[in-house]
Amino acid sequence: MKQMVIVSGKGGTGKTSVTAALASLGPDKVLADCDVDAADLHLVLTPQVSQEHEFWSGQVASIDPELCTACGECHQGCVYKAIAEPASDSQDQAYSVLTEHCEGCGLCAYVCPSGAAIMNDRKSGRWFVSETRFGSMVHAELFLGEENSGKLVTQVRTISQELAETQGRGLVLVDGPPGIGCPVIASLTGADLALVVAEPTISARHDLERVIGLTQHFRIPAMAVINKFDVNPDQARSIEAFCREHDVPLAGRLPYDPGFTRAQTKGQAITEYDPRGLGKEAAKVWAAVEKYL
């Protein structure tokens, strides 16, 4: 069983549209949406949820105002500035936790002399197993502003691999998040191939260089696909040259086409919306990727 991850560095270059198109091509696969804090793949694949699970990860502090003596030890020690001082106009002189800044280290609970600060398990999201017209899909929702997106990504990937094993599928297709940080690293770890979706823009080129730096850092083979290549053919060529120099084979090019947006509006993959035009271009990308895998 192989795992391919769609990444881009820069957001909005077409990762999810490309993922949906590749999902519709070739044999059934298991799909995984690892963009857990702004997931969109479900908008095209309209999954029927068969399992829903809570995602508990790490801890979060709380302070009992009855026990707090307002000594300020926790406030002083917290490097995340996650402890708010008592409001000057408030009756109860107690410190409180800004949960969106709390990383759950437990320092406040450790230093608190009165036992007011305690640590609680943190529910930071949900994950789902669903059925789609292109195969089973594992996806998730990280609650707003939560930590541990990397751990939720890892959970989605683990479940999708298990599912692929059980179902005897040859491929897990992963829609990755933008950037190069924690959730991207978690999406790429142990993958067989990273498919980088680039646009012929100065920003996307800059970001592609960094995300390819990341795939090379983790020794994950990468291929590239250039989306909207005809918006700026010079930039497209310069990206292709960069890829050649860095041993990143080109899996294909996709033209600028309002069909991308129209397909999205209809909840379809571009291969379904326009099987003869964009669908054929996407099929070339799939053929290149399949050959590699």
Partner: peptide, 14 residues
């Protein structure tokens, strides 16, 4: 700011 809704965005917006 960076994209998304997770902790880096919280830090950037606060």
């Amino acid at each position: 700011c960076p994209p998304g809704t997770a902790c880096p965005v919280i830090e950037a917006l606060s």
